[in-house]
Simulated assay, not measured.
Amino acid sequence: MNSPHQAGGSARIEHLVTSGVFELDGGSWEVENNVWLVGDDREVVVIDAAHDAEAVLAAIGDRTLRAILCTHAHNDHINAAPALAAATGAPIHLHPADEVLWKLTHPTHPPGRHLAHGDELTVAGVRLTVIHTPGHAPGAVCFYVPELGTVFTGDTLFNGGPGATGRSYSDFDTLVTSIRDRLLTLPDRTAVLTGHGASTLIGAEAKSIDDLLAGPR
């Protein structure tokens, strides 16, 4: 684990990588997922409780877990969420448009709270603003933390361009429109911390999205 970003106060971002299987539409793929913690020495939130609840609990340590935030409900981003919630008492937050995907993995354990575009959550003195970015999944969201100059994009935007489409409940045009209208409006130097793989910057991804929009379809 590392702490790549820290605010002027005590809030910081911590990073954990977990491994498991992504399953959808009858297929399965071995994947590594980024799990992000935002907080300080007393309290944190977890973004995308993937694969290994025990590893996430170890990263939290003796701090209070305020919330488990889901960027979307593909199984590899939520499969450890109920166990983490049971161990800590923290509520699980999900956009309601992704409940159809959630139920594929957790049919008897609904998420506890709904996310909506524009919602704000606070931890360790910093605000996480919910940005609804449908396309990779209907209820996909990103979490923008202006005090840390960071946006957590799940599988909406990666280093190199938009997330995958072509599977159930996804749509390419919707995804690119979400990125253009709701992410590329953020400052160019905003760090993009993704659901898989390396981080990037909003400004670095703007040209790839512009090329997609300008190219033949």
Rank of each mutant, 00 (worst) to 15 (best):
P138L: 11
D40C: 11
A204Y: 08
F172T: 13
D119K: 14
S3Y: 09
D211G: 10
A87P: 04
S28V: 08
H51V: 01
V21Q: 10
A198S: 12
G160T: 10
I179K: 03
G197K: 13
N159I: 01
F143H: 10
A124D: 02
A214L: 10
V130L: 06
H109D: 05
T185H: 10
V45W: 03
P216Y: 01
R217H: 13
T71C: 13
L121Q: 00
T174N: 07
E23G: 13
H72M: 07
H51N: 12
L69C: 07
G112F: 00
F172I: 07
G61N: 11
D98G: 08
A11M: 05
T122I: 11
S3R: 15
A124I: 06
Y169K: 14
P216W: 03
G160A: 07
E205L: 04
T185L: 06
H114M: 07
A97D: 12
D211V: 15
E54K: 15
E120S: 14
G125M: 05
G118I: 04
G163Y: 05
A137E: 01
E147W: 09
N34Y: 02
Y169H: 14
A90W: 01
A124Q: 06
A124N: 04
S178E: 02
T122H: 11
A67T: 01
V31S: 01
L148H: 03
N2M: 08
D119P: 15
P91T: 09
G154W: 06
P96R: 09
G154D: 03
T156H: 07
E205K: 04
P110Y: 00
V145P: 08
I47Y: 00
L16A: 01
P4M: 01
A124W: 04
G166D: 02
E120Q: 14
P138A: 06
L148D: 00
F158H: 03
N34W: 02
E43S: 15
T190G: 08
I13R: 12
N79Q: 13
V151P: 12
A80P: 00
H5D: 00
L183T: 05
A206F: 05
L183M: 10
T190N: 07
L184A: 09
S178L: 07
A87H: 01
P91Y: 01
G203P: 05
V45L: 08
D173C: 08
R189S: 11
A206T: 14
V100I: 14
